[in-house]
Design a protein around this nucleic acid. Structure first.
Length: 551
RNA sequence: AGACCGCUAGCUCAAUUGGCUAGAGCGUCGGAUUUUGAUUCCGAAGGUUUCAGGUUCAAUCCCUGAGCGGUCUGCCA
């Protein structure tokens, strides 16, 4: 089997390991979320990197809940996380794993470290330990308990586990070097006492390992070959490697990459939570949120998100992705997948004065990009709804191809119209547009010889259904609302990020199901919201269409 | 201040690991096509590779220094 080519620096490391015959050519990655929140676009990047690398090199990818802190983790997040990953299109190896499954093994490893004289039980307080830590440019000092005999450490640690001591009274610390330039190697805390029930192990434990004594060890237990994480864990790698050597366990290799940031999307758990709690959004799955649940509800296809994550590179530099590239990826998929329907978002009545009092059934293709999507029937009659913004009261020049007095325009899948004029109320608002049609101009067999530059969407007034349309805009007025030293990100909330309107849709739209995405011709992609009922269809704006018209 | 990491078009990444006029996608601006002012197609603009030295026949790449940005002093992950 010939090895795939490396597309980024992580893959270069992998190819290098493969070439060196490391792990007999086996590749195994993992995605290790902490089940204390919902997945967002940043997680999607990590998921895609891990799973795609597994796939590309014929390897496997585990899903492991990093649940070592009983205070913050909840089981319902586990289910939500699993759903999001499946929705994104990935399948992990075997069952979902949990760091908490390894508590026994982790405890045994701690004992081993103690027996090797590389860990000690410290009676210092939180403050004292912080004090001992020293500073970034100043060496720390040894804990007075650092030289406790091994037997005493063992005894104390066993009694910590047995529940003999209160929270915070003692910790287990690695014995490394209090003068190390990497603060994480200044005798880091490995275990703490917490008399708290864990979402999975219940009251079995009252001591819990910290990240540094759980994550790497779990990687080793699962024989993960490449442990990919974000840049802020760079300093932890030294400890990660120190523990591999001290514990003599499977040597997983940690590689760090830069997190992905996207304009207008916040990904911090704290901020996301604040948006929900302050009622700025309707919930964690609000379409304006950068959560996977939110983007799914907004109608972003999983494929588009995957493409987005794959096309934005993998490097070690801080990066800020443009929102329009995300939307580009969304449109690209939807252009091919979404059927075209017509809906009028800001309806004004149009009357074809020379059209008979009958209803005619017209046919239109569902998707010009994909003939296999077939056609559908659309009723047409004398009175229609058209878009208010498509009409201008005064005659226009040739560069304008929508409706205006004396203009000829094509109605999509129907006839060419000659616009005669309009009626208006006392305030000058157009109440009705009057037009005549060219009977020989019917779509498909046009023999009229009339040319119309513009083609407009419309719905038949008699058969149109009332729909609710939720037009979403960016949640913030600034692409990086959290990056202002003098202002809080909440100061940049866009007051107009949601507009709910009553619109008119063609009758076939009544059969749509939640999650279905359509292109409303000339307007944008819209996805049926879960709030939709048989009485009232509700559509979320997924993404607008590009427009080069500078009208 | 110390350690570590990073810096190539507006944005995100390439550059066969030192070798032709430094490429691509997105964006922008033109043009063609179009029963969606969408899509598609064609074209253009856009770079002193952060800066200054050095090594070399040759530097985006190696070395030194500087600048700018990031990370690290939780019993969070």
């Amino acid at each position: 089997m010939n090895k795939p080519e490396a597309d980024n620096f992580i893959e270069e490391f992998i190819v290098e390991d493969l070439n060196n015959g490391k792990h007999a050519g086996r590749i195994h990655t993992r995605f290790p979320p902490e089940p204390n929140g919902y997945l967002h676009i940043g997680h999607a990047k990590a998921i895609v990197i891990n799973f795609e690398i597994g796939k590309k090199f014929g390897g496997k990818t585990n899903l492991r809940m990093d649940d070592t802190n009983p205070s913050t983790e909840e089981t319902h997040f586990v289910t939500a996380i699993e759903n999001d990953i499946k929705w994104l299109g990935y399948e992990w190896e075997g069952e979902t794993r949990y760091s908490s499954d390894y508590f026994d093994e982790l405890y045994a490893l701690a004992l081993k470290l103690i027996d090797k004289g590389l860990a000690f039980v410290d009676d210092s307080t939180v403050e004292e330990i912080a004090e001992q830590k020293g500073d970034i440019d100043e060496p720390g000092s040894n804990s007075p308990y650092r030289d406790r005999p091994i037997a005493e450490n063992r005894d104390l640690f066993e009694r910590m586990k047995a529940g003999e001591f209160p929270d915070g009274s003692r910790v287990l610390r690695a014995k490394i070097d209090m003068a190390h330039p990497n603060l994480l190697l200044r005798d880091p805390v490995l275990y703490r006492i917490k008399h708290e029930a864990h979402h999975r192990t219940g009251d079995d434990w009252c001591i819990y390992p910290l990240y540094d004594f759980a994550h790497g060890q779990s990687d080793s237990i699962e024989e993960i070959t490449h442990s990919l994480c974000s840049l802020e864990f760079r300093h932890h790698r030294d400890l990660y490697n120190w523990l591999i050597e001290a514990l003599e366990i499977f040597p997983s290799r940690q590689i760090e990459f830069a997190r992905m940031n996207v304009d207008y999307l916040v990904t911090s758990k704290r901020r996301l939570k604040k948006l929900v709690e302050e009622g700025v959004v309707s919930g964690w799955d609000d379409p304006r949120m950068g959560t996977l649940a939110g983007m799914r509800r907004k109608g972003y296809p999983a494929e588009a998100l995957r493409n987005f994550c794959m096309r934005t590179g993998v490097t070690k530099r801080d990066n800020q992705q443009e929102f329009n590239f995300l939307e580009h990826c969304v449109r690209e998929v939807l252009n091919e997948k979404a059927d075209r329907y017509m809906a009028v978002l800001d309806p004004v009545k149009l009357v074809i004065t020379n059209y008979p009092e009958t209803t005619e059934i017209l046919t239109s293709e569902n998707n010009p990009e994909e003939e296999a999507r077939g056609t559908r029937e659309i009723p047409f009659s004398r009175e229609l709804w058209v878009e208010r913004e498509d009409y201008r009261k005064e005659p226009q020049n040739r560069k304008y191809f929508r409706m205006a007095p004396e203009k000829d325009v094509r109605l999509k899948a129907a006839y060419i119209l000659h616009i005669d004029g309009h009626e208006e109320d006392n305030d000058g608002n157009v109440t009705q547009i009057n037009a005549t049609y060219y009977p020989e101009s019917r779509s498909g067999n046009d023999t009229s010889g009339i040319k119309a530059k513009g083609t407009l969407h419309w719905v038949d007034a008699a058969t149109a259904i009332d729909i609710e349309v939720r037009n979403y805009d960016k949640l913030f007025t600034d692409p990086t609302p959290m990056d202002h030293e003098d202002k809080d990100f909440m100061d940049f909330i866009n007051p107009e990020s949601l507009e709910v309107i009553a619109a008119k849709g063609e009758p076939a739209l009544a059969n749509a199901k939640a999650g279905d995405t359509f292109q409303f011709l000339r307007k944008g992609y819209y996805t049926v919201d879960e709030d939709a009922t048989s009485e009232k269809m509700v559509f979320n704006l997924t993404c607008g269409l590009k427009s080069s018209w500078k009208g």
